[in-house]
């Protein structure tokens, strides 16, 4: 086997996997804090890409200003969605809340189509295009930048959750909301911050993904691949999202290169099925113990 080819496929797979992981973190954050499976995360990611396009191309701002603005727009959307749609659903069945997020996704996709049309668009170039070589293996520069950015953000999140009081508050809220509230943790604020951070992260991931592959109103289906990632990693584990993301990225790239593109999804979902049979709560997810 050609080792150089293998190395290049592996690198590309890890690059894609890092973006899965980053979006996975957004998923996990919301699930951990609020126990909501947010299926609209793919559409929020898409909106991040379009917001960037709007700021950079529409308003003619520098991409380096448009990027933080797009991330901030994602955060603002997260805040709004949590306050206006999710909090009133508090105490409703999880399926109802899940359906609300599906509806939200459709609305966001529709809004984007109304504003920018259904055709795929390219984001303005803003990343350096010098090819990156690791050893002899070539890596597309945008993929490399995406990988580094995702790694930095995930590393930051991991450190924050481990060492800050906010991280402790998140963990406590995830474990028992009533108890957290009673020891002085502002649970509604944890909800709010989790949605803001998650949606800002998703919007940032949207800009990275859009820079690599362009943006379109159907980009939200990326969220479904990420759902596979977080189910494999464990819905409530940041580390799980990281490992699951890299794993799925790698598996997809290898399957695409050696078995053919049509096998990508087959292999991914076969992996999901096997894993769910062995570890139904994911690789790193909390094993719910029911004592009777």
């Amino acid at each position: 086997m050609d080792t150089l080819f293998l190395a290049e496929v592996t690198l590309a797979g890890l690059g894609a996997g890092a973006l899965y992981a980053l979006t996975g973190v957004a998923f996990v954050l919301i699930y951990k804090a609020t126990r909501v499976v947010n299926l609209a995360i793919g559409e929020i990611l898409m909106l991040g890409g379009y917001a960037f396009l709007g700021f950079a191309a529409g308003l003619g701002l520098s991409p380096w200003l448009a990027l933080p603005l797009a991330i901030a727009a994602g955060g603002a959307l997260g805040w709004l969605v949590e306050r206006a749609l999710i909090r009133p659903m508090l105490g409703e069945s999880p399926i109802s809340v899940f359906m609300v997020t599906i509806g939200l996704g459709s609305i966001l996709a529709g809004v984007v189509q109304l504003g920018w049309g259904a055709d795929p668009l390219r984001l303005p170039e803003f990343m350096p295009s010098t090819p990156v070589f690791i050893g002899e293996a070539y890596l597309a520069p945008k993929v490399a930048i995406g990988f580094v950015a995702a790694a930095v953000v995930i590393g930051l999140f991991l450190a924050l959750f481990r060492f800050s009081r906010g991280g402790v508050a998140l963990k406590a809220t995830a474990a028992d909301q009533g108890a957290a509230y009673s020891v002085g943790i502002d649970v509604p604020r944890v909800f709010s911050v989790a949605w803001i951070l998650a949606c800002a992260t998703a919007a940032g991931a949207g800009v990275l993904i859009g820079a690599i592959g362009g943006i379109s109103p159907t980009m939200g289906v990326f969220g479904l691949s990420v759902l596979v990632v977080v189910i494999i990693g464990g819905l409530d584990s940041i580390a799980g999202a990281l490992v699951g993301g890299l794993l799925i990225g790698l598996v997809e790239a290898l399957a695409g290169a050696f078995l053919g593109g049509e096998f990508k999804l087959v292999v991914t979902f076969a992996l999901l099925l096997v894993l769910l049979m062995v570890r139904p709560y994911g690789l790193f997810g909390t094993h719910e113990i029911e004592r009777l």
Binding site: R165, V168, A169, K171, A172, A175, D176, G178, A179, A180, S182, V183, G184, I185, T286, I289
Partner: peptide
């Protein structure tokens, strides 16, 4: 209402959060 999955010591320390 304890924080499941955490140790006894961590649970007690969380009481000081506020």
């Amino acid at each position: 209402a304890l924080f499941r999955g955490m140790t006894v010591l961590d649970n007690i320390k969380l009481g000081r959060h506020a």
